[in-house]
Design a protein around this nucleic acid. Structure first.
Lengths: 128, 128, 128, 128
DNA sequence: GTGGTCTAGACCACG
DNA sequence: GTGGTCTAGACCACC
């Protein structure tokens, strides 16, 4: 699992780390129960401060993606409680994203095809 | 077009304004060529600094959603050049969002159904 | 609202800050909607780092005691959703505390009297 | 006496052990004079480092809950000197806990009822 | 002026 | 060796 950070992007570094780990979990690169590198190691590898990595880990922990076993360090939560999601048609981020795509002229077919394809890739364990 | 802002949310106010206007355009509440309220008016109505509204308008203009005329003020761009979008399967926000939903246990069927429904609503001019 | 911190205590400083603010809310010294000092100010007054105060505020925000209005800074949450509390008889901290008191020979009468008195003080707006 | 430890909790393991033993004493599961398992045994059973169990035992000994005999190992203190407690209305943990409950909307009646019930359970030797 | 983010260190609690 | 806490700065986004 190699992280690629863009220090020029407006997305904060800790969020970039968080996002890439979520992506890693989704595409199977990071398996439930798998150990994550210690914050110091990850910080050294990526050239960011330990506090920044720490913040990303805290966020992931709070979201339930990650647990920190006091003996072993950080690992992917092997028993994640799949959050009770309200109906997807009320998901704010989904609504906004679809609105943007719609105004941009993306057709329903294009969208559904893309979603289908992305989901298939995830289920096969492929990398997005 | 009524804006609902949450000053306690982590999303910056200017982005909340921008997002709601984009939503309004998508669901037809704001039609191409329609005039938007002057910055000062909108600022007074929402209890926000004029600089903040200005920032939202600037962003919308830069994204092509809006055009401004010195004499008439701001209006929805009647001739928006639908941005050349790269293949949707490479859309970063879509990839991240789908990954989150996937890890949360949302099935492909649920997702496709929701997208279908949301798109239909948009095409009928309904409000998301 | 004056904070008294003990740097020698084993309770982390950020938690001491958090605890005293919760106490202040309970005894009415801090009223819903009241503005809290900016982190810099509080940091300077108490002689701790801004990051430490920030951490306390973040925790309070996460617990719903506090909101940060993007325009005005931090304030006591005026519309706190009183957390759905499970039956008090299953409250881990209460169970542990009562067990300690019980083993220490505190009688039921002593306990109930003390609770009664403390609650009355809170309801009258007195300081614990 | 079975210990249930959660390595992902923020409470340190040695404290979890200490707390559960205190709970066991209070509800009568561990009787005065009863022998506790040797450190190594308990460590092996729970998958914890012996140092950790040792730390818990040391803490319990220091608090007077436990006594250790070189030949017999650790046992529940049969003659615990019930610590001189200052007036309960000055107990810091009680004050904080009650404040949290008060702000959470717990009524005096709910609290007193719960305390009553918990104490009765303890006196009957029931498990909390 | 506000909170949010980040750095380059350091020390401590825990295991 | 792990994460948790803290410091003394600094810069930035937002308002």
């Amino acid at each position: 699992m190699l992280l690629k950070l863009d220090f020029a992007m407006d997305t904060p570094i800790y969020l970039q780390i968080r996002n890439q780990i979520v992506l890693g979990i989704a595409n199977g690169e990071l398996k439930p129960g798998e150990k994550l590198p210690p914050i110091r190691t990850l910080a050294a590898e990526t050239g960011v401060n330990t506090m920044t990595v720490n913040k990303a880990y805290q966020l992931l922990k709070q979201e339930g993606y990650l647990i920190t076993d006091r003996r072993l360090g950080a690992m992917i939560n092997p028993a994640r409680v799949t959050a009770q999601h309200p109906p997807l048609t009320e998901h704010p981020a989904l609504k906004l994203l679809l609105s943007e795509l719609y105004v941009d002229g993306v057709t329903k077919e294009e969208l559904l095809t893309a979603c289908n394809e992305l989901y298939d890739t995830l289920e096969k364990g492929g990398t997005l």
